[in-house]
Amino acid sequence: MIQLEKYNSGKTEKHPTGYSYFMPSKINTQWLWEDQNINSLLEKAAIKLGELNSYSKLVPNIDLFIQLHVTKEAVVSSRIEGTKTQMDEALLDEDEISPERKDDWKEVKNYIDALNQAIIELDTLPISSRLIKKTHGILLNSVRGEHKQPGEFRSSQNWIGGNTLMDAVFIPPNQDYVNALMGDLENFIHNEDIKVPALIKIGIAHYQFETIHPFLDGNGRIGRLLITLFLVDQKILSKPLLYLSAFFETNKSLYYDNLTFVRSKHDMTQWLKYFLVGISQTAESAIQTLSSIIDLKLRLEEQLFITFGKRSNKANILLQHLFKQPIVHVNQVKIITKTSFKAANDLVTEFVKAGILIEKTGHSRNRMFVFEEYINLF
Rank of each mutant, 00 (worst) to 15 (best):
G355I: 06
K239V: 04
K353D: 13
Q86A: 12
S56V: 03
I222R: 12
D113Y: 08
F351T: 07
F247W: 15
I317F: 04
H69V: 09
L319M: 00
I335W: 01
S9T: 13
H15K: 01
N187T: 08
Y55V: 13
L318I: 05
N331R: 13
M368F: 03
D217Y: 07
F153P: 12
L237V: 05
S77G: 09
P214I: 12
L225T: 15
G278Q: 11
K360H: 07
V76N: 05
N366E: 07
E34C: 06
T135D: 09
S155T: 15
M268Q: 09
E43D: 05
L254C: 12
R263P: 05
R299V: 00
H206Q: 14
Q281W: 01
V169T: 14
M1T: 08
F323G: 02
T83Y: 07
L272V: 08
V370S: 06
A343H: 08
K239E: 13
T124E: 15
H363N: 14
H190L: 10
V232L: 07
P126N: 11
E192C: 00
R367V: 02
I27S: 07
I358W: 01
S238Y: 02
K201F: 06
A354V: 04
Q208I: 06
F170H: 10
M23A: 12
I97F: 05
M368K: 14
I236N: 03
K11Q: 14
V328W: 01
F261N: 15
L304K: 04
I317D: 05
A168E: 08
I38S: 09
E249T: 06
T289W: 04
I47S: 05
T361Q: 02
I279M: 15
R130L: 15
Q86P: 02
I66Q: 10
L91F: 01
Q320P: 00
S40C: 01
G309D: 14
I358C: 03
L4E: 10
T83E: 06
E284S: 15
G50I: 04
G278P: 07
L322R: 06
A180H: 05
V169I: 09
Q281T: 14
F248P: 11
N219E: 10
E152V: 10
A315S: 06
Q30S: 02
Q320G: 00
A45W: 00
A198E: 11
Q303S: 09
G18V: 03
I212H: 05
V333P: 07
F305D: 14
K6R: 14
S253Q: 15
G355V: 02
T361G: 04
T307Q: 13
I80K: 09
I293A: 01
I127M: 10
P197I: 02
I222W: 06
V328S: 01
L139A: 04
L58I: 04
M182F: 05
S264T: 15
Y207A: 12
G203H: 07
A114K: 02
V262W: 11
F170G: 02
R365I: 06
S364M: 03
K338M: 11
S238G: 13
L41A: 13
Y19M: 03
S285H: 13
